[in-house]
Simulated assay, not measured.
Amino acid sequence: MNRASNLNQPLIFVGPPRSGVTLISDIVMHHDQICWLDESFEKHPKSDFQHRLFKRKCAFRNKALQNNSFLGSLAREFSPAPSEAMNFWDDYTREEIDFYRGFARGKHATPVEISSIREILSRRIELSSRSRLALRFTGPSRLCYLNSLFPDAKFVHISRDPASTVHSMISTEEWEYQGKNLLWWRGAYSLQELAQYDRLRGHAVAGTAFQLNKLIQTAKLEATELDLNMLSVNYEDFVATPERVIEKILDFAELPANETVNAALKQNEIRCSNKVLKMPATDVNTVYTWCPAT
């Protein structure tokens, strides 16, 4: 039996870091038809025991969601959560793909990669008694590679106001050691762009905006080139009308309304701190110079 047939139309969330990708995808992944990846899968992707345990962990997660007591809050804190499972993708793809830092621009999965990755993910779906796969990737969208793995995938691209995103990125400890003073993501820059970045290297705001713009523009370009089935979601719209945006995503994914998703939406504090107002005007202008709001 070809188990990979249960991988029809996976739902894949993509977008820059600090843009709401994690929050929105986590809410949608509470749906009782969706199978997702967690840290246990990342460590043991071929473990049938872990796949079966995932079913019970999801039930625990959903039960904790309905409990408004202190114990329920504690259970939610320690319940499993969706992961990007970068170690899995790095282990099962060839070196040039580089899921940690690479754009994988124009890269396709090999027949071996397609067979092995789809077999493992299909097994995950089968043993967890779910019907649809959902994945999440922040940073480069890697749409060409993902499309070669899942030709009928439904993509949700999430973006946020560039100034708010840049402010949030440069405020994190991780970015201090990643892209604050160097090009963090690799494989999509022309020689002219590399020379351009060298002139921005000492300016954290400009350099970060430059990299954010590359993420956004590359995703748009790949989506157009590949004619992908993609829904674009703006984080500010989600904050303004979260129920409407989640309903739009579920309709796009052809998934029915779900009580657990609604409960997850109510449990989350949906807010949008206006990062633009916290930045000096010169920094805001710098962001929009190197990453125009579109």
Rank of each mutant, 00 (worst) to 15 (best):
30 H>L: 08
30 H>R: 12
30 H>E: 07
31 H>A: 02
31 H>G: 13
31 H>K: 05
32 D>R: 14
32 D>G: 15
33 Q>H: 14
33 Q>A: 11
33 Q>C: 06
33 Q>E: 14
33 Q>V: 07
34 I>Y: 00
34 I>Q: 05
34 I>A: 06
35 C>W: 01
35 C>Q: 06
35 C>S: 04
36 W>V: 01
36 W>I: 00
36 W>K: 01
36 W>H: 07
37 L>W: 00
37 L>P: 05
37 L>T: 06
37 L>A: 07
38 D>P: 10
39 E>D: 14
39 E>S: 11
39 E>C: 12
41 F>M: 00
41 F>E: 00
42 E>Q: 12
42 E>L: 08
43 K>C: 05
43 K>P: 07
43 K>G: 10
44 H>L: 12
44 H>R: 15
44 H>K: 14
45 P>W: 04
45 P>I: 00
45 P>Y: 03
45 P>K: 03
46 K>P: 05
46 K>Y: 10
47 S>A: 05
47 S>D: 11
48 D>S: 13
48 D>C: 04
49 F>Q: 15
49 F>R: 13
49 F>H: 09
50 Q>K: 09
50 Q>P: 01
51 H>Y: 02
51 H>D: 09
51 H>G: 07
52 R>G: 06
52 R>L: 07
52 R>D: 02
53 L>H: 02
53 L>D: 03
54 F>M: 09
54 F>W: 07
54 F>I: 07
55 K>G: 06
55 K>T: 00
55 K>F: 13
55 K>Q: 02
56 R>L: 12
56 R>V: 12
57 K>L: 13
57 K>M: 07
57 K>N: 12
58 C>K: 10
59 A>L: 09
59 A>N: 04
59 A>Q: 01
60 F>M: 01
60 F>I: 04
60 F>V: 04
60 F>E: 02
61 R>G: 05
61 R>Y: 01
62 N>I: 03
62 N>H: 07
62 N>S: 08
62 N>L: 05
62 N>A: 05
63 K>L: 11
63 K>M: 12
64 A>P: 08
64 A>H: 03
65 L>P: 02
65 L>H: 08
65 L>Q: 01
65 L>G: 03
65 L>M: 11
65 L>I: 01
65 L>F: 00
65 L>Y: 00
66 Q>N: 05
66 Q>K: 11
66 Q>S: 12
67 N>H: 01
67 N>L: 02
67 N>C: 06
68 N>L: 13
